[in-house]
Nucleic acid binder design. Sequence first.
DNA 1: GATGAAAGGGACCAGCC
DNA 2: GGCTGGTCCCTTTCATC
Lengths: 146, 146
Amino acid sequence: MDATDQKILNTLMADSRISQKELAARVGLSAPAVAERVRRLEEGGIIRGFTIDINPEALGYPLQAIVRVRPLPGKLHIVEQIIQEIPEFGECDKVTGEDCFVARLYVRSVSDLDNLLERIVDKAETNTSIVKAKPVERRMPPFQLS
Amino acid sequence: MDATDQKILNTLMADSRISQKELAARVGLSAPAVAERVRRLEEGGIIRGFTIDINPEALGYPLQAIVRVRPLPGKLHIVEQIIQEIPEFGECDKVTGEDCFVARLYVRSVSDLDNLLERIVDKAETNTSIVKAKPVERRMPPFQLS
DNA sequence: GATGAAAGGGACCAGCC
DNA sequence: GGCTGGTCCCTTTCATC
């Protein structure tokens, strides 16, 4: 893991579909050399996978909400299971503190939001915030040299 | 956008580096047909881009925190700017409600966490939760047919 | 949307520095 | 590690069904 690997990661993060030749040119190496580095980044678990970035709006989900969830006593596992079973939850973190879960919900409308939260209101307290903007999106901290 | 497109999205989400031939086989179409569909999904803005999934642990950031940020009166913009300038913030949503921002912070240690939050303590109230687990990760809701 | 063909480019493997 | 060159496969585009 050096500065070249960092460049490779940044480049692939922005566009992972460029050819090895193109990637090599951008980081200043030959194609086989860059291919070998990408292979090692994958084997080392630094690159977890190649994927696509999907626009939820275009899928029909123009609204996002951040939902903090505090299950009632004894309801933690059932609440976690319900969150996993509702596909509109795009990510969910189990965290320390008063809230047990912080989750992102993709919804079609505020009434849709209300309907979905109905499924946990009797098992948890929730606190919902609508996402108005995204000051930071899809970013990874730099690898620190030395 | 139909069931086949949904399959294409799911397949590419899991691995965007497979060949068109392979993708075509998995969704039950010919290669040219699948290529045309992917092209339309890109042009329609449904596929926002091809990218990689990076493991922050392997980059040297074993801890994640969810930070809720409530800027002091008059400090909203400067706080937003500081968040954008700290690379350890991997994502930040501006939301409705008491908290103005909900952000994800990648850190090397809890002391690192403390150091980073020092840069906004005089400009905002913060509430930080350490991520203990990820019950749901990187998931997109299904496109609803009809 | 499928098929088949042709041209161009990329990935992969040697062999070598 | 990295470079160069050669081979094979894939991608892309076209015409046709």
